[in-house]
């Protein structure tokens, strides 16, 4: 009887998780791109975030928005991953479970600008990067504050400063490219 209940709840959790991952796959992948340099690392990070989301799903009580909860977990994993990547020795064995099929935008200029934006974001310090990624994901200041633990005022100040830095970097890159 208990086993039947367990099986049912596990199946329910699986469905919920698959739905969550499907709905937020692109968001998670964008975040992974901001914190990794190689495709292998990106796949590893995506995998790690998926594992942590699966583990944390039973603790989600609906107090925060699902996106806030997801970003909080994903960002924590990404920051820890980024820290570990800097410290760990290179290994030959990699988990490579997700195949990323990219068909670049038709427009070369758009592709170049996306790459440029990713470069500029990668150049930001980690906390600034977290804030900026969330801002680009169109999270409100309140959500960013809830996810990062910074005050809303602090988020506002930071975003204003990082925006300038990011736009400066984009202009500089554009200038360099020309």
């Amino acid at each position: 009887m208990t086993q039947t209940t367990d099986t049912k709840s596990t199946t329910g959790r699986e469905t919920e998780f698959v739905q969550l991952l499907n709905d937020n796959k692109a968001r998670i992948m964008r975040l992974c791109k901001a914190y990794t340099a190689s495709r292998e690392d990106r796949e590893d990070l995506f995998q790690e975030i998926a594992v942590q989301l699966w583990k944390a799903l039973p603790t989600y009580r609906g107090e925060a928005q699902i996106s806030t909860w997801l970003y909080r977990i994903a960002l924590n994993v990404a920051l820890r991953f980024s820290y570990d990547t800097k410290r760990r020795k290179p290994t030959s064995e990699r988990i490579s479970w997700i195949e990323e099929t990219t068909s670049h935008p038709e427009d070369d200029h758009t592709r170049e600008r996306i790459e440029q934006l990713q470069r500029c974001i990668a150049a930001l310090p980690e906390v600034d990067r977290s804030v900026m990624v969330l801002y680009l994901e169109e999270c409100s200041y309140k959500e960013i504050s809830e996810i990062t633990g910074l005050t809303e005022t602090n988020v506002g100040v930071k975003i204003s400063r990082i925006k300038d830095k990011l736009l400066g970097c984009m202009r500089k890159d554009e200038g360099g490219a020309v």
Binding site: M29, E100, P105, R113
Partner: peptide, 28 residues
């Protein structure tokens, strides 16, 4: 400009799809 960047950022995964590399996963 920032709105453009937000749009650009969203577009960065628009054309990507992910499939499981089943064989690689099973090997691991």
């Amino acid at each position: 400009e920032i709105q453009d960047l937000q749009q650009l950022w969203q577009e960065s995964t628009t054309n990507e799809s992910f499939t499981i590399k089943e064989r690689a996963m099973m090997t691991h």
